[in-house]
Design a protein around this nucleic acid. Structure first.
Length: 434
RNA sequence: UCCUCGGUAGCUCAAUGGUAGAGCAUUCGGCUGUUAACCGAAGGGUUCCAGGUUCGAGUCCUGGCCGAGGAGCCA
């Protein structure tokens, strides 16, 4: 029996007989020649079937194969200049596992399709080369985040998905029945991170977050993934350095390990290669000045719109850290700047090329009285925050952290138009299936 | 939630108010090196739904449904 080989490894088997397990990607025919293209999740290889060289039933069986039929195909690996990937398979035998029926053919043909059709068939669309490349880059980004933090002494502490109240009070939450009670799907692990960090010193959580806002843009999902590191005794500058280093590490890892995927996506490498520290730092004050000079309607005290973020990031060739926003546009738990108390010790990182905010974070309020005041000002339900106040009663220390939205990072690194392609099964305002 | 655009063959799209079409896909035929192969032929329609105007509606009007792009909000 010939060995079962993954397509990505066929170069090691040149001249040998191998079996490949996969799906029919396409079939071309030219007289007494058949060219079945087989994919197996690791690559695509072109098979060559010469009518005179195989038994008639083998030729007939391959000829009637339909797109995405599952199969095992056996043949000899041969280097060939004409083949994409450099190798092709001289087929001698085929075993059909399931033949896609003629009266119900595979819906996604190797031609152009509209986004609605593709999203309705997302479960099949994932098989395409482009989507497989995105899944690979996403995996690498997630792994890079975890490797970076794990190697620096962070402990992963999982935070709950069901929560009793809003983390930030402002955004809309998904409400669910929780036996006789109401619960909400988390929008951030932030508050629980603050409890965990007092236990382990450096922590992060990595999980899904949910926002029930009716956002309808290329940057929004209702369910998205976020990595949130938190460090005890860290100040704003420390968290800015951490965000910068993490982003640079992630980009570097993708460049190192996922070149083929970036090529499939036709992603320009140059802009990614520039993403090395230090990243430019920009105060909110200066950012507003730049925006006003470029014709934005922004006034001091307001938050940036998507267009503002794009204008700002276009001034730089790498991610830009914007710090010290007015407290009024940021969450209640931000520490005020001791020099200018109307500002929060916070930072947003804007990705280059108009991809917008990928990181948001800052220094948390460590003072009990001030935090109490903020909770009251924001009319947050105090009982739900008693445990959070405990963190300021029992050995409160300065601490800082941030959240990085995985989908936006994937969209940026892959050069995608829309975050809907960055996650296997996107959840959006008008999209709950498949 | 608001603004804009769209819904016609399996897919992507055309069609001055006057016989509903093309490319691709599918089936059949041809080709011994094809690269989203190519060449020839065939089959394929509740024009999103419900009303209305008209001799006549895919086209015009009203309402609804579904989707896309953007805004606000956010990662």
């Amino acid at each position: 029996m010939p060995p079962i080989v993954e397509i990505r490894n066929v170069a090691n088997f040149a001249g040998q007989e191998v079996t490949i397990q996969g799906w029919l990607y396409n079939l071309r025919e030219s007289g007494r020649l058949l060219f079945p293209l087989v994919r197996d999740g690791t690559g695509i290889i072109q098979g060559v079937v010469v009518r005179s060289a195989v038994p008639p039933e083998v030729f007939a069986r391959i000829r009637e194969l339909t797109q995405e039929s599952s199969l095992r195909v056996t043949g000899k690996v041969r280097a060939d200049q004409r083949a994409p990937g450099g190798f092709e398979l001289d087929v001698s035998h085929v075993e059909v596992l399931q033949l896609v029926p003629l009266d119900r053919p595979y819906p996604i043909t190797p031609k152009e399709h509209g986004i609605e059709f593709l999203m309705d068939h997302r479960h099949l669309w994932l098989r395409s080369q482009r989507q497989r490349a995105i899944l690979g880059v996403r995996h690498e980004i997630v792994k890079a985040c975890r490797d970076y933090l794990d190697e620096r002494g962070f402990t992963l502490v999982d935070t709950p998905i069901f929560t009793p109240a809003a983390c930030e009070g402002t955004t809309t939450l998904f409400e669910v029945n929780y036996f006789e009670d109401k619960a909400y799907l988390t929008q951030s692990g932030q508050l629980y991170n603050e409890a965990a960090v007092m236990a382990v010193g450096k922590t992060y959580c990595f999980g899904p977050a949910f926002r029930a806002e009716k956002s309808k843009t290329r940057r929004h999902l209702t369910e998205f993934w976020i990595v949130e590191p938190e460090v005890a005794f860290a100040h704003l500058d420390d968290t800015m350095e951490l965000a910068e280093a993490l982003i640079a590490f992630v980009v570097g890892r993708v460049l190192e390990k996922r070149r083929p995927e970036l090529e499939t996506l036709e992603r320009a490498i140059g802009p990614l290669e520039k993403c090395t520290p230090p990243f430019p730092r920009l105060s909110y004050d200066d950012a507003v000045k730049i925006l006003q000079a470029k014709g934005s309607e922004i006034r001091w005290g307001g938050d940036f719109g998507g267009t503002d973020e794009t204008i700002l990031s276009e001034n730089f060739d790498r991610p830009v850290l914007v710090h010290r926003y007015p407290s009024q546009v940021k969450a209640f738990y931000m520490t005020p700047d001791p020099v200018r108390p109307e500002l929060a010790l916070c930072v947003d990182v804007l990705a280059p090329e108009g991809y917008g905010e990928i990181v948001g974070g800052g220094e948390r309020l460590a003072d009990y009285d001030l935090l109490m005041k903020r909770i009251e000002e924001n009319q947050l339900p105090r009982p739900a925050f008693e445990w959070y106040l405990d963190l300021r009663r029992y050995g409160s220390v300065p601490h800082s952290g941030f959240g990085m939205g995985i989908e936006r990072v994937v969209a940026w690194i892959c050069g995608l138009e829309h975050v809907r392609e960055t996650i296997p099964f996107p959840r959006m305002l008008y999209r709950l299936t498949p």
